[in-house]
Design a protein around this nucleic acid. Structure first.
Lengths: 249, 249
DNA sequence: CGGAAAATTGACTTACATCAAACTCAGTGG
DNA sequence: CCACTGAGTTTGATGTAAGTCAATTTTCCG
């Protein structure tokens, strides 16, 4: 019964098995009732290690999620924008710190409350689970970006996926807002701030993007950028040309 | 009720997910009835893009999980050893190829069947979910390794976590089996085979490890290795008593 | 405006990749 | 049993992408 949600049948992302009257039911509805907390730019929403008591949905603004390594390095795990949620795929304690990049308004929902709601509203489960899977997918993507791509490729990938997130159609000049600093981008991409700058300058020189102030970039040649980014995320099931490596004992 | 599984209350996660097979009720019981398929070294179990119809549990052997990028690069997402499962945190289609490193025996369980079982055996859900969360945790770990650590740190981290996976106690010389090739390790760590070799040679020269043949390594100085690896994963709230080193690699 | 923080650019360094041998084994067959 | 073989590994020489250090220049916010 309910387990069908945890084990979605092949096919569509959000399990359609128990859809019924789907329309008016999303997480938004649950969050809608909650009061909106406000945070100033630079303010922390929660910290790594805190008890993960709430799920949050951003009403407005942008957050950075990061961990600080023992030696002081900062690894940004991702950014969250209006409409997105955070805190769902943590067990027990938050596994990163969430900090406002811009002024942020967000709604909280305690796990206890969400749990209670989940019992009454059955189709809630697959929605939550879909978000968890989406996070895994994003994490795997990030692994490939960091492990395999060069500085230019990483940056192109970042821009393209930012554009994709806005929902803007692929066609022609897409303008994206990047409220975070260059340092944030660098810490996200595993590069230095200087390298990020140089790459952006190069992309500009090559006519692939236009820089409008610090926080707005126009992607002029999406196709080229996607190609630079590797395009490994899209469909295209590569023919498996594996080597018949054998076990050398 | 069941939603409490998807939204585990703060505090303890499901006890030691990664421990060896514990008696009472685990996935092992479900897999126990299934016949064991055999695969020769180098043989594929499933391919990226295949319909993710089964969950697999490895009875014996080692698998590598990877994706091939459009330009031919191979990104190894992870390895799986005896007792571990694969295919759980995929939606619809497998998101990587699974290939035997050594001869492998594994049991399959169709999602449909697992779903059916999940209805009868209630405590099954949290077990599955725990595995999903564990994968997220591992992916985040990998992101930090690839984004922030240098070659030596990455390699040390790989060794330490391999040791941890065997369940061997932290104390004193731990011998680990690494059935995969150096190339596999390189593709997993985002390095070249030469760099992996050089790092291992250096660790040997420094007396941190001993190399016994190609596929066995003795970790002589766990503490040093852990320190090299950054130690950012364990509990240990690391008092920041250390100088804010810059960006060494 | 004015000043400080952020971004950019340039000169130089370094860690890792690349290219190229040589070495090590484990499997095979004489 | 031992030489042959070839994949896998190791080591060395060299190249290069990205990091580091150090100025500027730009932006934006009071």
């Amino acid at each position: 019964m309910y387990s069908s949600h945890l084990l979605p049948s092949a096919g569509s992302a959000v399990p359609s098995v128990f859809d019924g009257p789907t329309e008016p039911l999303t997480l938004d509805c649950l969050f809608a009732g909650q009061p909106a907390d406000k945070f100033a730019a630079g303010e922390g929403v929660f910290w790594e290690g805190d008890t993960a008591s709430d799920i949050c949905q951003i009403v407005e603004g942008c957050l950075r999620l990061y961990r600080i390594l023992p030696d002081g390095r900062r690894a940004i795990m991702g950014f969250r924008f209006a409409g997105e949620t955070l805190g769902l795929s943590c067990e027990g304690t938050y596994c990163y710190t969430a900090e406002a990049v811009t002024p942020v308004r967000l709604r909280r929902l305690s796990r206890a409350r969400l749990r209670a709601m989940g019992e009454e509203v059955r189709p809630l489960q697959p929605l939550l689970l879909a978000k968890v899977f989406e996070e895994i997918r994003a994490a795997r993507q990030h692994i490939i970006v960091l492990g395999q791509l060069g500085a230019e490729e990483r940056t192109a990938h970042f821009l393209v996926s930012a554009a994709r997130r806005t929902g803007a159609d692929r066609r022609r000049p897409v303008t994206i807002e990047l409220p975070m600093t260059r340092q944030d981008i660098a810490d996200y991409l595993g590069l230095t701030i200087e390298t990020v700058c140089r790459v952006l300058s190069k992309l500009k020189r090559d006519g692939l993007v236009a820089l409008e102030g610090r926080h707005r970039i126009v992607l002029l040649r999406m196709t080229n950028l996607q190609h630079l980014a590797g395009e490994f995320d899209d469909a295209e099931p590569q023919a498996p040309t594996w080597t018949p490596a054998k076990w050398p004992h």
